[in-house]
Amino acid sequence: MDKTIEQIKEDALKELEAASGPESIKALSVCYLGRKGLVTQFLRSISSLPQEKRADAGKKANEVKKLLDTAFKKALKQLEAESAVSDDRIDVSLPGRVVKRGSLHPITQITQEICDIFSRLGFDIAEGPEVETDYYNFEALNIPKNHPARDMQDTFYISKNIVLRTHTSPTQPRIMEKRKPPLRVIAPGKVYRCDSDLTHTPMFQQVEGFLVDKKSSFGDLKGILTTFIHKIFDDQTRLRFRPSFFPFTEPSAEIDIGCVMCRGKGCRVCSQTGWLEIIGAGMVHPALFENVGYDTKLYTGFAFGMGIERIAMLKYGIDDIRKFYENDLRFLKQF
């Protein structure tokens, strides 16, 4: 019983520091804490001490035992963890195993974006049938039979009175018949026209929008559409409103935006004009209100419609509308 417990501790820690592998740490552990280890022996020797010193020595020895035990275990764990790392290497440059997500059709994405913007502006989303009666597609919209305005849209007929809707505008009388003002509605959907070339497909998609209330003006229409254009493109986009003609609006307007391709300088996309026609709009024609039984003295409203492909083409820089309906995976996967 020569060394003090303090000395034992110092020695043990020194040796631990010098220890080179798990085996030597385990040996150290046995050497100090094993049944015949130095600390164990010291503990046993306490009984031979005078009564008054036993308690203190015992406490100190136990503390050392605990301390060393922790130190050995910690060192051992550290070494084990280190030994799990070997010189083996993997080729991190190999491609990862494929996990494929599909993608939404670009038209769906733009439609959702448009709907989101108008939802935030307080508009409901509604839908209507794609095959329509002549009444809702034309007559209710103030486009009588044998009116030259019918030439503005090449119509697919199913029978004399059944057509593939040429625009989403029939949703206006359909919804107005069912609901009373105030109304704020947008209605996206497929529409059909007998036309097929670089800028036309026989089926395409539109979003119709309308607002009917006791007080709504052409200025309000400008406000809503300006906000929309700034959200769907960016708030630097210039707009201009110019007179046009739709049988179901009066006054009617065509909304042009500054060409997003050339920023108004003039390019092929905008036919060198610097402007792109993007939305048809106007104040709802009173004939439409009369057809659905609204009081034209009490209510005014505005309506607008736009082609979704056109917006998608501008946003994504696509020059051939037919790409949307070829469903070539190499195209669809880009969105």
Binding site: G122, E250, P251, S252, M283
Partner: peptide, 30 residues
């Protein structure tokens, strides 16, 4: 209404002040 279009046309659509409709704060879930 046809006359209002003539007035708007001659005044200039782009000279008409851009305003906003009063829309009540209602949640409109799809």
């Amino acid at each position: 209404e046809d006359l209002t279009e003539e007035i708007a046309r001659l005044y200039g659509y782009n000279n008409i002040e851009t305003t906003f409709p009063l829309i009540p704060a209602e949640a409109r879930p799809p």
